[in-house]
Design a binder for these strands. Structure first.
Length: 738
DNA sequence: TAATCGATCTTTTTT
DNA sequence: AGATCGATTA
């Protein structure tokens, strides 16, 4: 005990301190909810810089969400300001950073734009003509999944995702087209860096030289491709440290593999394991409720989480008649207690937020909605972004198709085909092909090209910073003059905003959306204005534009943070609560069919349990759970049964309010329960069926229609069919009826 | 080519 | 209930 430990380590418990001070072999930290894992990581970063004299730039810490990355950066900087220079990013943002710098080695243009799921679907539609939309969706989804599993179009293992030839062909053609355009989807941001590092050992070695410390938070959320990336970043000198909790794995639908945690010790020999099992966040009664649900899972590593806090207030379970009462119940709880910022109202699906918003608005309860921000999915915003994307990458066919004929300029499918055949660079091809088009189409394409050119002109490419401010001032005046003269709908002259405004106006998109319908037109215009405002933070150059687009694609929470300072109730989905904590939490809609969702069985049901665990362990002092007897869904009022999770809690641990619906009594005490059976008793969820034309399939949904039960089947060939139990049951044969 | 009507589906969860 | 998509129509 020569030198005393620095003071900032005093507040850590023994295990936490061991984890911070650990060096050498790879380290796996199994950290239960509320056990201070973020604290361990951030302290470790600071300690490595401060005490071990590490260059902050040699430290990399990867998270899954931007929120987590930001928080990590902020907290590490409190202890050690130099932490700001460390690379603290999400997996995807690291991938984008990596590929902008080194993608050239794989023939990738550094000016790529990142496609979201919508764009991917649109791209797929261009290579798979004549395939119906729902089918395209399945294919696009499976392509994304394939990339999560690090599978390429030629991979035999693709079979496991979707064994159809159509799928293989779709993936192949999709990837070919995407490559031709030079853009990337989310999956590529992980998969391509792995491939690059594998094919260029010198580059991998340079990375091993640079990043001596690599840490990963929420490792239970990593998919196969991400675990491969980690392997490639691990060199002979690398200190590797991952933190995870198998009980909080809630993203397997996106390819996350809890197995990664189990396999970590095998992949990285001599791994040491430290468990953080003391929960500092929740009262012991809250922890008890959360644990009792997740205890019903089979597949667990098993750890004991001990509450440090006292028993506290007993969690409340409220049985309510309907969702309106639920909103009122929440409002009254909140208003009685006050302290808006202490409260979170949590639900399973984004759609459930609406009722609370209406009621909170009526009562004047301040709130903020996390994550449901559909801002970037709005038509006008996607239009504006497509214009921007086309400016940086004229090969972007998805963007081109989206906006070239919007508003209508007389460019039909025939004209478009001719342009696209004219070459991969659609800007050049448009120019070249224009004279050959009909008069109407010709003038149309020229209007479009003029708008794009005007947008380009706002970008100062040989940017000297001082010159730009002068231009900025001049532009601002010009903009204001224009505004006064009544020209233009949008304001914006600072930074990139000028480009957004110019494109939106010159293209006619602004006018189009304004005139299209009177009610939402102004809203759409103000959305465009908001986009322009966001752009003003970026430099008016091509790099600035790329940064702006990348930021939007990778972090859509933009603008949410500003409201955080305000004292407001948080409305949030269960998934989005991960990593957060609140003094008081209300878990709403805890009903069978909503949570867990009706089609969840087996491993999926276990994931829902973990989701319950995540939600409940967000609460520090008070936990409320509400379950409604009736709920309006799809315009109909449906009777609901309480969630089976509620039976898994020892009823003594809850204070129960309201009348337990009869259905609850019926389901109480039953060990195993068939998830959902059709009312005629013929079909159950998960049943295997055979159909003469379609082959084998599985029942994924049963619902009551006007003419009896309607059964939905997904076949192994990817087709989806629904049939009336009363009519067609003879052509569907149930397999392995037990 | 645009507008209108009707059928159908929606409510997972996210980088 | 509301949105969205497709087909039909002007």
């Amino acid at each position: 005990m020569a030198t005393p430990l620095p003071a900032y380590l005093d507040t850590l418990n023994e295990e936490q301190r061991r984890a911070v001070l650990h060096t050498g072999s790879p380290l796996l930290i199994l950290a239960g909810a509320g056990s201070g894992k973020t604290r361990v990581i951030t302290t470790k970063i600071a300690w490595l810089i401060k005490e071990k004299g590490l260059d902050p730039q040699s430290i990399m810490a990867v998270t899954f969400t931007n929120k987590a990355a930001r928080e990590m950066a902020a907290r590490a900087q409190v202890i050690e300001p130099r932490s700001a220079q460390a690379m603290l990013r999400t997996f995807h943002s690291f991938g984008a950073w990596f590929l902008r710098r080194h993608g050239k080695l794989a023939g990738l243009d550094p000016g790529f734009v990142i496609y979201d799921d919508d764009d991917s679907l649109a791209l797929l539609a261009t290579v798979m003509e004549g395939i119906p939309r729902p089918e395209l969706r399945i294919l696009a989804h499976n392509i994304a999944r394939a990339k999560d599993y690090f599978l390429s179009p030629g991979d035999p293992e693709l079979e496991l995702i979707d064994h159809r030839k159509t799928f293989r062909r779709a993936y192949e053609k999709y990837q070919e087209k995407l490559q031709g355009i030079g853009n990337l989807d989310f999956g590529d941001l992980i998969k391509k860096p792995v491939e690059l590092l594998r094919n260029h050992r010198d580059l991998a070695e340079r990375f091993h030289e640079r990043f001596r410390v690599v840490m990963v938070d929420e490792y239970q959320d990593a998919n196969i491709a991400q675990s491969h990336l980690l392997k490639e970043l691990y060199g002979p000198q690398t200190y590797l440290c991952v933190v995870g909790d198998d009980d909080q794995s809630i993203y397997s639908f996106r390819g996350a593999q809890v197995k990664n945690i189990l396999a970590f010790s095998e992949t990285f020999p001599k791994t040491e394991i430290i468990k953080l099992e003391q929960n500092y966040r929740s009262s012991s009664s809250i922890l008890g409720v959360a644990s009792s649900v997740v205890d019903h899972n089979r597949g667990r590593l098993g750890k004991t989480l001990r509450a440090v806090k006292k028993e506290g207030k007993k969690p409340v379970l409220a049985f309510l008649p309907d969702q309106d009462t639920e909103s009122e119940f929440c409002s009254e709880l909140i208003q009685k207690a006050g302290g808006y910022g202490d409260w979170a109202v949590v639900y399973r699906t984004n759609a459930q937020s609406l009722g609370f918003e209406t009621e909170f608005l009526r009562r004047g309860i301040p709130y903020r909605v996390v994550g449901s921000l559909k801002f970037y999915e709005r038509e006008e915003i996607k239009d504006a972004l497509a214009l921007l994307a086309f400016v940086v990458n004229p090969r972007d066919e998805v963007a081109f198709r989206r906006v070239v004929n919007k508003p209508s300029r007389g460019l039909g499918p025939a004209a478009l085909d001719r342009i696209i055949e004219g070459g991969a660079n659609l800007y050049e091809a448009s120019k070249k092909t224009a004279p050959a088009l009909s008069a109407k189409a010709r003038s149309g394409i020229q209007t479009f090209l003029r708008a794009i050119e005007a947008g380009k002109l706002t970008l100062a490419n040989e940017g000297k910073a001082e010159k730009k401010t002068i231009i900025g001032e001049g532009m601002r005046e010009a903009g204001e003059a224009k505004q006064k003269a009544g020209e233009g709908f949008l304001k914006g002259s600072i930074g990139l905003s000028e480009c957004v405004v110019t494109l939106a106006e010159e293209s006619g998109i602004a006018a189009y959306h304004l005139s299209h319908d009177e009610v939402s037109g102004n809203q759409r215009l103000s959305n465009l204005q908001e986009l322009a405002n966001a752009a003003s933070l970026y430099e008016a150059s091509e790099e600035g534009l790329l940064e702006f687009l990348e930021h939007i694609e990778l972090d859509r929470s933009l603008g949410e943070e500003t409201a955080e300072t305000a004292e407001a109730v948080t409305l949030i989905t269960l998934h989005n609560t991960k990593g957060l904590e609140f003094k008081r939490v209300i878990m709403t809609g805890i009903e069978q069919g909503i949570f867990p969702r009706e089609d969840k069985t087996g491993d999926d049901l276990e994931e829902e349990r973990r989701l319950f665990y995540v939600g409940a362990t967000r609460a520090m002092d008070e936990l409320y759970i509400s379950s409604c007897a009736y709920r309006r869904m799809w315009g109909k009022t449906m009777p609901m049964a309480p969630s089976i999770f509620l039976q898994e809690i020892d009823q003594k641990d809850l204070r129960i309010i309201g009348e337990r619906p009869r259905s609850f009594a019926q389901t109480m005490g039953r060990e195993e329960r068939r998830p959902v059976k059709s009312s005629d008793g013929r079909w159950a969820l998960g049943d295997r069926v055979y159909h003469d034309d379609q082959g084998y399939g599985t029942i994924t949904q049963i619902r009551e229609g006007d003419q009896g039960p309607v059964v939905k089947v997904i076949f192994e060939n990817g087709q989806e069919r629904r049939f009336l139990s009363s009519h067609q049951s003879s052509s569907y044969i149930k397999i392995g009826d037990d």
